[in-house]
């Protein structure tokens, strides 16, 4: 490890400690804000892990997020919590494998379309199952967690996700990914097993997203499909990652933090027009910075104001 990397690690570790101690001094409201923010940082980083290098835009974040939350809702009274999390991860992983195996061989646009509808499909299927098989609509989550407990779990997950992202960037897979992102055909000819790498990344990313949903589930107490499969989650994750730059390690984080605060403020100040503002903001982001803020900074530093 070079000096620079060890320094970065020390700095990140210090930040992590400070963040972990924050709930002990902050009032509950701000712990809640930190919790939501950490959730989105993890979601955006996990999203970018797959979609950044492969350029397969996934609109299915909430499908996995919701499955995670719902698994906790169904299983929280039957087994101990760690086992529930494992189950959620397992279900998310299986689902990602199935979706990935059937769509990742196809052109990117088919994947986008499939993921676009996946959340709706999963939501309807879960609702159907609840109505016809288990005869329950809506479930309660009773776990002895306060906001800060959930926050700490999310913080660990966020750190692990960033670590995975960093490790992948330095490994052979990362190299293969760079080739794949530049030109898939060339990468395939150079001996990169394109489909397998895409599948691997998709599964890792989806599993993390499922876990975010699972860990956040106790926040709601009451859960039903229309709450946990809210498409806004996919949407916000996407904007955050794109704003920060999906190709960089810290990009999604840089995008998620300010946007989360902005959304928090918007949803309190303009609850009725939230989705309109969200949509307009999104269009604006695509227009002004197609490669994300960090790339924009680089451009500005290099002096070529394209």
């Amino acid at each position: 490890m070079t000096m620079k990397t060890s320094f970065a690690f020390a700095l990140a570790g210090l930040a992590l400690v400070v963040l972990a101690l924050a709930p002990l001094v902050l009032p509950d409201y701000w712990t809640g804000v930190l919790l939501g923010m950490t959730g989105y940082v993890t979601l955006a980083t996990a999203w970018a892990l797959f979609s950044g290098p492969t350029r397969y835009v996934s609109l299915a974040t909430v499908a996995f997020f919701g499955v995670g939350a719902y698994t906790v809702a169904v299983l929280n009274e039957v087994m101990p919590y760690p086992l529930v999390l494992l189950c959620a991860a397992g279900i998310g992983m299986t689902m990602a494998l199935l979706v990935g195996l059937s769509t990742l061989r196809l052109a990117g646009v088919y994947f986008v379309i499939f993921t676009f509808g996946l959340a709706e499909l999963v939501r309807q299927t879960v609702s159907w199952w609840e109505v016809n098989v288990t005869y329950t609509m809506g479930r309660y989550v009773f776990l002895p967690f306060e906001g800060r407990h959930i926050y700490w779990q999310l913080l660990v997950l966020a750190a692990v996700t960033l670590l995975i992202s960093w490790a992948i960037g330095r490994s052979r897979i990362g190299l293969a990914l760079k080739a794949l992102g530049d030109d898939e055909t060339v990468a395939a000819h150079a001996g990169v097993d394109v489909t397998r790498i895409k599948l691997l990344l998709f599964v890792i990313s989806a599993t993390i997203i499922t876990l975010v949903g699972a860990i956040q589930a106790p926040r709601w107490t009451y859960i039903e499909p229309s709450i946990v499969f809210n498409p806004t989650v996919s949407f916000m994750t996407l904007i955050m990652a794109l704003l920060g730059g999906a190709m960089r390690l810290w990009g999604p984080l840089v995008g998620a933090v300010p946007l989360f605060l902005l959304f928090e403020w918007l949803s309190v100040s303009f609850p009725d027009h939230f989705s309109i503002i969200l949509g307009l903001l999104f269009i604006l982001i695509v227009f002004v910075m197609p490669n994300g803020v960090l790339a924009k900074f680089d451009d500005l530093r290099k002096g070529n104001r394209a």
């Binding site: 835009v57 027009h273 939230f274 989705s275 969200l278 949509g279 903001l281 999104f282 269009i283």
Partner: peptide, 12 residues
């Protein structure tokens, strides 16, 4: 991406 944003505007 742009029409995804437009979707939210229209829906809103």
């Amino acid at each position: 991406l742009v029409t995804f944003g437009l979707l939210f505007v229209l829906q809103g």
